[in-house]
Computed example of a mutant assay.
Amino acid sequence: MKVIIVGAGIGGTSAGIALQRLGHDVVIYDQMRENKPVGAALSLWSNGVKVLNWLGVGPEVAALGGDMADMVYLDGLTGETLCDFSLAPVTAQSGQKPYPVARADLQALLMERLGNERIHLGRKMVGIAQDEASVTVTFADGTTDSADLLIGADGARSITRAYVQPDGAPEIVREYSGYTNFNGLIPVDSSIGRATAWTTYVAGGQRAAVMPVAGDRFYFWFDVVQEPGLPYDRAEGVAPLREAFAGWAPGVEALIDAIDPAVSLNRVEIWDITPFSTWTKGRVAILGDAAHNTSPDIGQGACSALEDSFALGIAFATNTVSVADTLRRYEAIRAERAGELVLRARRRGFETHAFDPEATAAWYESLRGADGVGIIRGIVGNIEGSPVNLGAGVLLD
C-alpha cells in the first residue's frame, strides 16, 4: 500500500517509520525547505521513549537524551531551593527512563531512519481529493501525487484537519494560552543548575528552566505572560527576557547572559485547540499537532504525536477490512486520550501562570519542602494511560 504523509516533523516521520516497518511504501512531503524545527528541544517522557524503542531507534535516542536524574524547583526571586528530588520513581513505575532531547537531533534521526530519499521538502499541499480507490494531493507548484492513504501531520494550522471535518461542524479555532515561550540551547553551566537536573525557577506566574540534553548542553525555556501579537524583532535578542525577569535570582541572570541569540533563541506564542472528535474522512486522517495542538505545560506534545504513530501502526497491523475502517479504529484509540492531555495541559498552564493568582500561590507553597511524591504522581498519571503501555503502564511496589 502506498502512503502519503504531509509533514516531516516528529509525528510524520515516526508514523512513516511505523508504516514502513509493516511493508508499506511511504513518501513524505513538507513545505519546509530544510530541517529547521520549531523549538530547540522537547521532553520525551517514558511513553514517548517507548514508542521510539518500538520503532527501533531506542539506543540512538538514549544517546541523544540528557541524563535528567532529578527535578529541582527554586524561588525565582531569591534563588532559594523549594524542593529537590529524584525522578528515579518515574523510571521505576513506568519501565522507561525519560529523556529531554534536542528537537533537530531527533528529527534528523527519524528522517534518516525513514530514508531521506523518501522525504520531499519545499512542497506545500494546497488540495486534497479522494474517491473509492485512492486519495490525491495537490501541491502549490501544480504537481500532484496519489496513494491509498493520506496522513496529515501538517501541524497546528493543518489543511488536512479542515478537510476531515464533517459538513456543518463548528469551526476549529486555535486559542491563545496566555504566554510566550522563549527557548534555545546553551552549554551546561553549574551556576544555573546541575548538569543532571531539570531546574525551574518560579515567581509571579512566570518560569525559567533548564533541562540537560546530549552534548553537555542545557535546553532552556522562559515563559513570559503577555498578550498575543506583540511585535518582536530578532535584533532585540534577549532584551524582552531582561525586562520580564529583572530582579530575578543570580541563576536566571546567568542563564540570560549565557544565551547567544545568533546561535539559539526561539520565540513562540503558545496556543492550543479545544479537543474535537473527528480525525478521519475515508482514506485521510490527521496526526500530531493537526489532531491535538497542545501547550507544553505537561511536556506531552511530542509524546502524544508518538502515541499517534504507535496506534496507527498497530491499527494497520491488525485490521484488514478497509483503509477507512482502520483509520476510524485509529481515531477511536486516540481521540479521547489525546484530547484529555490537551485539557490537562491547559489546566496546568492556568495554575502555573497566575491566571488564578490564589491557585498559583498555593502551588508555590506546595513546592516548598516537597518530597516529589505528588509531582511524580502527576507525571506518571500522564504516562499510564498511553496505548503503548497496553494497559500495564505503571507498576507500584
Rank of each mutant, 00 (worst) to 15 (best):
I286K: 03
I286W: 03
L287E: 10
G288A: 12
G288R: 08
G288M: 05
D289T: 02
D289Y: 00
A290P: 06
A290L: 06
A291G: 13
H292T: 09
T294S: 14
T294I: 11
S295I: 04
P296I: 07
D297P: 01
I298A: 10
I298G: 09
G299R: 07
Q300L: 11
Q300R: 08
S304C: 15
S304N: 12
A305M: 02
E307M: 11
D308C: 10
S309L: 04
S309P: 10
F310Q: 01
F310E: 01
A311E: 04
G313I: 02
I314C: 04
I314M: 11
A315L: 03
F316W: 09
F316N: 07
A317S: 14
T318H: 12
T318I: 03
T318M: 07
T320C: 01
V321H: 15
V321K: 15
V321D: 15
V321M: 12
V323K: 01
T326G: 03
T326P: 02
R329P: 08
E331I: 00
A332P: 09
A332K: 14
I333W: 07
I333G: 02
I333M: 13
R334L: 11
A335K: 13
E336F: 10
R337Q: 12
G339Q: 06
E340M: 08
L341Y: 07
V342M: 09
V342L: 09
R344H: 09
A345E: 01
R347P: 00
R348V: 02
R348A: 14
R348F: 09
G349I: 05
F350C: 03
F350A: 12
T352F: 10
H353A: 02
H353L: 04
A354V: 08
A354Y: 12
F355E: 05
D356T: 11
D356E: 11
D356Q: 06
P357Q: 03
E358N: 04
E358A: 13
A359K: 11
T360L: 08
A362S: 09
S366F: 02
L367Y: 04
G369L: 07
A370F: 13
A370H: 14
D371W: 05
D371G: 14
G372P: 10
V373W: 07
G374N: 14
I375Y: 13
I376W: 10
R377A: 15
I379F: 14
